[in-house]
Amino acid sequence: MKNITSGIYEKGAINLNEIMNSLKNQPQISNVGSILSFTGIVRNTSKEGNSVSSLTIDAYDELANKSIEKICNKIKKRQGIIDLKLIHLKGSFKISEDLVYVVVASAHREEGFKALRDTVERYKTEIEVWKKEELCDGSSDWHH
C-alpha cells in the first residue's frame, strides 16, 4: 500500500478510497477513533445562479504544493489530530466530478470536525490554484 502525500494531482490520478486506505495503513492508526472526509465536487450552477457545463482547474504546482504542506503541517500539530490529507485535483471536470479531498484522522470526532472545516476554509483561499467555470451559454469566467 503506497503512502499518499498531500498535494496537487492530475484528475483521475487518485481517489478517496486510496486516500482512506493510505490513512488506515499508517502506523498510528490504533490511536485513531475517527476518520472524516470532505469531497469538493463540481456543481451545476455558479454562485451567481448561471448554469455551469464544466469546470477547469489550473495550478502552479510548485507553489500550491508548498502551501498545502504548510496548511497540513499547521493543522496536524493540533492536539488529537493523527493525520491529514489534502488532495486538490487539476484538469478539466464535468458536473459532479471530484475536485478536492480533505481527510482527517483524529483521536476523537470533535477535533476532527474542527480540523476538517478549518482545512477546507484555508485551501479555498491559500493554495495557488485557479478555477474557471464554463457556462451553458458558451461564456466562461475565472473566479478570484
Binding site: G40, V42, L55, I57, Y60, L63, H88, L89, L99, V100, Y123, K124, T125, E126, I127, E128, V129, W130, K131, W142, H143, H144
Partner: peptide, 10 residues
C-alpha cells in the same frame, strides 16, 4: 517568473 491573480480553490 510568474504573475499570479488571486487564487480560487475548487
Amino acid at each position: 517568473v510568474a504573475f499570479l491573480l488571486p487564487v480560487s480553490g475548487g
